[in-house]
Design a binder for these strands. Structure first.
Lengths: 231, 231
DNA sequence: TGACATTGGTGACGAATTGTTACTAATTCG
DNA sequence: CGAATTAGTAACAATTCGTCACCAATGTCA
């Protein structure tokens, strides 16, 4: 940083190869799952993330929607970029640049095509190093933003019980939450509204169904949080 | 979304042009400022963000460091991606894809080269639409992550007073904070440690200098926050 | 039919955190 | 010297949070 000589930059674009790599996440039996596709014979790894290049005139999230639709039959309504990579790590299509995108899909939506399968986030098979990085980033981003973005609601059907919702939060955060506290905080947030439907799920009292319906509330936030944790 | 036919994807990379666009942010007189460079004669807008294509074998943040170094003479130690764009909006070099990167620079570091200037975030001159989007995203990202990432410390020199730090938080958050609450929260966070130096800044009592020195503290966080605000 | 297990839902209380007021401390200015 | 200005903190009130205890509504099974 010591007074480096000022080199005038003559900026110019550069031709490279690019890929959109999609981490489709969905809550499966008690764990978040990622959708992988079987790689062609001869590839270094047997599985990979769904990916493709954006087509002409197509935005990145649009491309992610197309790719997901092709593999899952349903297209999630929520995407979030988790970082763009341009490093030495290997990509299955040898793209120079990879745009990582997380796609959130409710539990019941769509079904994987023949060569695709859900894998619990915690026990993935071997995938290309760059895909590994993208999956890890997607998990980190989702965990980090869960309380600032309506991520959890995108992993649930349009109506859900509060226990469902709490379950998703517990999946994302990786820890148990206290029922009464969770509900009180949710109440105060005006993020959901009750429907007049109830769901009976076998044993136990039936639960009321809610829907995501955030009320306008201007950000009159309080002091600083310093929620920074050094691992 | 209605049962779209499953189109088998034959993924393939695609050649495109790419640019790294850097939003260098620094606290200037009572406002966050962005570093812009004068565009060549004949360009649609007279100013633009510093940008260039990543060179061979160079990572994206590395490219951002090089670009910033060339324009500011000093290279910030902190970069954060704020999103990758691939849409119709115009880029000064007509890149297909733009990777937006925020670079945080302490107030005194470096000096703009001849054709570069600081502009307060609130009153920018006309720049290319894509650059406008990237600046807005950078501002949003920085505001959103300020309490989860040590962003504020990257806008300050290695040692600083607590009033300096509070000032940066107020800049980033765009609202005033209460002194006593701020300091109590900071204390509880173990993010800074006092040095044995004091700084006398003209009138008033001299202030103790602190440095950023996060102590390890495992994330034993509490309930959910639902800090989601719908504008 | 009537315990009992199971899941949903809530009131209430003490503990912890946060917002605020008000004060003390150390310096410059006139 | 006193007034003005900035730094720093103790202490109190208001609010929020974690927890416990309980009630409600259903299915199971003797």
């Amino acid at each position: 940083m010591r007074d480096r000589p000022v080199v005038p930059v003559k900026p110019a674009v550069r031709r490279t190869t690019i890929a959109v790599d999609v981490v489709v996440l969905s809550p499966r039996v008690d764990a978040l799952a990622v959708l992988l596709i079987r790689a062609p014979i001869g590839a270094r790894e047997r599985w990979s993330l769904p990916w493709d290049a954006p087509q002409g005139g197509e935005g990145l999230e649009e491309a992610a929607a197309r790719i997901t639709g092709a593999v899952l039959g349903a297209s999630p309504a929520f995407f979030e970029q988790v970082g763009t990579l341009c490093d030495g790590r290997r990509h299955p299509g040898d793209a120079d640049v990879s745009v990582g995108i997380a796609a959130l899909s409710p539990a019941g939506d769509g079904a994987p095509v023949e060569d695709a399968e859900w894998f619990p986030l915690a026990s993935l098979p071997a995938i290309a190093p760059r895909h590994r990085t993208i999956v890890d980033r997607a998990a980190a981003v989702v965990r980090q933003r869960v309380d600032q973005s309506p991520l959890a609601f995108r992993l649930l059907p349009p109506t859900f019980t509060l226990s469902d919702l709490q379950g998703v939060y517990e999946l994302l955060l990786g820890r148990r939450l206290h029922k009464a506290s969770f509900r009180r905080a949710l109440q105060a947030s005006y993020l959901v509204e009750p429907t007049d439907e109830w769901r009976s799920e076998g044993r136990g009292r039936p639960a009321q169904l809610f829907r995501y319906a955030p009320k306008k509330r201007r950000g009159a936030r309080r002091g600083v949080r310093f929620d920074l944790f050094t691992e």
